[in-house]
Each structure stands twice: as structure tokens, then as C-alpha cells.
Design a protein around this nucleic acid. Sequence first.
DNA 1: ATGAAAGCGCTAACAT
DNA 2: ATGTTAGCGCTTTCAT
Lengths: 338, 338
Amino acid sequence: MSALTLETIAKLAGVSRSTVSRVVRNHKSVRSEVREHVLQVIDETGYQPNAAAQMLAGQRTNIIGLVIAEPASVIFNDRYYTQIIQGVARELNQQNQTLTLFLSHDKSEEPLLAKRLVQNQLIDGVIVCGTRTGDLFVPALLNSTMPFVVIGPNENRQVNFIDIDSFSASKEIVTHLIRLGRKRIGTIAGPKDHPAAISRLQGYKEALQEADLLVDDRLITIASYFTETMGYELTSSLITQSVDAIFAASDTLAFGAMRAIKEAGLLIPDNIAVVGFDDSAEAAMVQPALTTIRQDIFAASTQSVRTLLEVIEHGHEPAKQIYLPTQLIVRESCGSLL
Amino acid sequence: MSALTLETIAKLAGVSRSTVSRVVRNHKSVRSEVREHVLQVIDETGYQPNAAAQMLAGQRTNIIGLVIAEPASVIFNDRYYTQIIQGVARELNQQNQTLTLFLSHDKSEEPLLAKRLVQNQLIDGVIVCGTRTGDLFVPALLNSTMPFVVIGPNENRQVNFIDIDSFSASKEIVTHLIRLGRKRIGTIAGPKDHPAAISRLQGYKEALQEADLLVDDRLITIASYFTETMGYELTSSLITQSVDAIFAASDTLAFGAMRAIKEAGLLIPDNIAVVGFDDSAEAAMVQPALTTIRQDIFAASTQSVRTLLEVIEHGHEPAKQIYLPTQLIVRESCGSLL
DNA sequence: ATGAAAGCGCTAACAT
DNA sequence: ATGTTAGCGCTTTCAT
């Protein structure tokens, strides 16, 4: 490719290598006429600095790693993760950084992957997402000098993260149900090793307490997976408890609940209101349309990139922990329009 | 991180830098005792060569780019592409290469992306997929020295590609219909700028001709998109032509066809047999289960990586063009079990 | 079989 | 403001 080097450009422009380097790196101390001229030569020749040499001499590679702590099979079947990839890729593009994707194909590959990540000399930093309690990556990263940010919650005070405010959002949507007059509100919570699920359950409890309603354990069910089937199965016990509303920790769970309620011959929202979380594409399409919480995944991706770049450049003590706002989307399933 | 360099290891092992380098790069001329010893030191210290330095001094980066010539929004909603990403990532992992993903967010970004790709000095080569007629990437790449392979068909003799044999597969499934006694077989073909769609249509025609059946243009419909709705709409004209079977160029099109046929009060496969292409997840679940063609996307991904690595290492003249086999999956919609 | 030495193309401290 | 110079850590002739 380009046999063009700094040296070549320097000669062509009649200046020294350093000057050209300064121009390229946008350094202040270059006379503007000189800068102009050098820029012109660069443009004419189509010169592009050699990335490997830049890395070796400088410290930055301008490559960012993205790890998703789930097997590839689930990543690509989950809209959440694919949107993260998309969002991160776009922002990285705009910041002139390169993305490298680290995927594990099953749990067993994770330790190796974590190791490769930590001692990777090719990346300036990494964005981690999909971590659960007991996850490998965050501890490994904390134990290293590799800058990183996580997308999603993390209990450690030292880690930089971007999260949505699951707690407040859940509280908001449950409070919405309470305002509509619902009294026996059940919930289908997510798995216990899933940090977001925990926050959502807490939000639910908080909303009840704030309204002086009793938090009743019989109205709380725990789904081991975020699947439609789990939602369906857990709903029967909630119906037995004669709830008048259900807050599901994800839209998918909510869809299962809706199916169970219909099969039991009850009406949504007349007999039981149902609300979800995520605002997935189907939420607006089901019958009745689902009231839910919308989160802006692209915003989270963008923010994660910016934060990481900041951490790489200036470090960040104490850790930056950002909660992005969510939005309550009111449709029919909550009974607002009743 | 590792303040460890070749030099350090050399000292520790009591040999020269060059020797350590030779050991690392698996060069022949090192006495096996020496090699053992050096290897042991490397192992004990956890030494890892500096990638940037390797790149600069050597010529390889061990980074491979993957470009998908579609806007990101479609990539992540299409099982085909997500499987490609997954498959490529896995094989690259195994070959100790790093993956970098190049995504465009809409058509307008493509020229810039193509340029960045071609003059990228950070990657050894690129895998391209999702190209249509009139695509930008292949011409740009051909015009450069960047090694590349495409996944999918390409009419250019000079490009290395891995494709499935759409033509033979289509011929096979249509022949299957003919053997079952179908005489008026219609088709819903894919868009005209879609190379795979063209091959599928050709396979269809070839099957008819080989069986001495007339190729009737009134039985050929062209879908401008691979959507369920297109399949549904085009089927009515096929019903008017009183076909007794329909070959859809994709499962999704087939699903649309099935809906239209049912709505017309006809039976599948009794009145009209329907077959698809892809063997998507839903194919086995619809009623009646869809007879279709399965393609092995993972095999294509793996093969593309291997071919690319080969091209990078030894070059390849003439271009290597590989057709991967497909498999006819017989279910109920074709009427085999009638 | 092994070591010495010359770069690879760039950055950054230092000198002017 | 600009140039000089010494590396960054590795690969690879070329000697030995």
C-alpha cells in the first residue's frame, strides 16, 4: 500500500518529520501557513499514518473492545444485545475508533476470554455488558490496568457504569397502577442473579410501600428465565391470589401473563391489568397493547463509549456511575382508558 | 501490564533476543533443549509479545475485518447475518485472529466505509457479505491490494467466494415437487438485484425443463423484498393461474403464500403444495410444517475465514470459488406424506 | 544453531 | 515554532 511515511511527506513539504507529526496530531505549535501546506501535501498524496507504528511509539491504539458476557447464541437472539452492538459500533465510528468484538461461544470459554481481554495490548479499553452476579470479566478487569466501563448495573463502587434507572422506572409504572386504583398488584420478577431484575423488584416494593400497601410475598413470583413460558406458568399462582394487576419484569414475561389470563377467561385490563418492561417491538402490537417502560439502549451505548474514552484519556476517580432515564409508555393493558 | 519484552526473556533464558523470537514464531533452527527452556521461561513469566511491535516489524496484524453490506438495522434483524457474525467470530477465535466489525448505518455511509476498509493498515484482509449487484465494496477491494473473500455469490471471476449452491438446491426441491406429481408449479422469486434470488429462479427453470415441463412466465412472480407480506400478495395471482405447487425463494415468502392459500379456502398440500428456502426456525413450527432447503451458514463462515487466511498467506490465483452443499428437508407442506 | 545489528514508522523529550 | 534524536518491541538478514 502506501510506501508513504512521515519522512516522505516531510521531504515533500520541506519540513521535518516532527512537524508533519504535529500537523497530523493536531498539535498547537505549528505556524498556520506551514500547517496548511503540510495538510495539502498529505491530501495530495493520500498519506495515512501507519497505525502499528503509532501504537508502538505512542500509547493509544484507538481500538476499543466490546465484550458481551453471554454465549453468542443468546446475544444474537436478543434485541437488547444486538442494539448495544449497533449503538457502540456507530458511536465508535463517529469517534474514529475501531471496534473489536469479543465473543464467547459458551460459558467454558469465558476464563480464557477474560484473560485475553486483560492482557490484550491491542485495545485501549473495553466495554462490558451482560454481566450477572458472579461474572468473571469485571473482577478480572478490576484486577488489571485495562480501562473499562460496563453497560448495566454493578454493585462495585469502583466500576464505571452506564445503567438505566430500573428501580425508579419500576416504581413509576407500579405507582401508575396504584393511581389507577389497583390494590392487589402482583409481580413476576426476573432471575435472582440478574442485577436489573433485582432493582425492578425493589422498585415494585418501594412503590407499594410509598402508597401504604402491604408487600405480600405471595404476590411475588420469580422467573428463572425471561421467557414467555415462564410468564405464563407463574401467572396461574398469581390468579389464584386474585391479583387485580401484574407487573412483569420484562415484556416477554408480560406476554406469557396475558396468555394465561385470557385462558383463564379473564379480561385485560378489566379484571387484571398487565404492565411490562422494555417496550419491545411487540409491545405495541399485542392485544391489548402493553403499557411498559421504554429504555434508550442507543443512548446507553453512546454514553458508554464517551465515558470509556474519557476514562482512557483522563482516568476517573471516583468511578463514574450514570443512570439514564426511562419513559413510561401508557397503552391499554393497564386500564388507563377504562 | 507486561513490562516484559523479548529482551527480558532473552536475559532470563540466557540467550539472545533473536533466539527467543525464533522460539515464539516456531522457527525451525533452534536446538530443542534451548527451545524447551525458553518456552518454560515464557510460560513462567506469562510473557506476551507486543502486538504493535509485531505488526510494525513483521507484516501481519492478525486482525481480520468483517463487513456486511447492509445497514446495521437490517443486519441485526436477520438471522442469516447474525449467524455469519457468530460463525466468523468463532473461527477467527480458533485461529487466534482478532475480529473487527465494520458496519454502515445507512447506504450513505458506504463509500466512506469502503475507503476506510481499503486503506486500512490494521487488518490483514476482509470478509465481505451481503453484497448485491451494484455493490461498492467488491469493486473497491478489487482495485486495491487488500486480500478479501466474499460470502455469497459474485459474478466476477477474480473474486474468491464461498457460496451455497442455490441453483442446485432450488433445482432439487422443485424436482422433488415434480416427482410427487405436481404439474403446474409456480414460484415466488426474490428481488432481481439479489444474486442468490437469481440462482434460485434459474434452478426452478432448470428443474422444469429437465422434466419437460413448460416454463410459463405467468407462473413466475417476483417479490421486491423477502417479506411475508410480499409472499401473501403475490400468491393470489398464482392461485388465479391454478397452480398445484409453489416454490418460494425464502421461507418467509412461503409463510405469506401459506396464509394466502388458507384464506382462499384451499388446502396445503392437498390443493397446493408449498416449499421454501432457508430452513428458518419457524419452518418446522408452522402448520403444515414447511418442506425447505437447509443451508449451513456456520460452515460458510468457517470456510470463509480459512480461505481468507490462505489467500493472505499464499495468495490465490486463480480465485477460489467454493459452493457449499445444501440439504433438502422434507416435511408436510410438499405433500410427500399424502 | 545462535547472536549482532539494522530497521519497521512513528512519538515525544529535548534542544535550538 | 521547528528540528534533532532517542527509543517503542519486534523481525530478519547477515555474520559467526
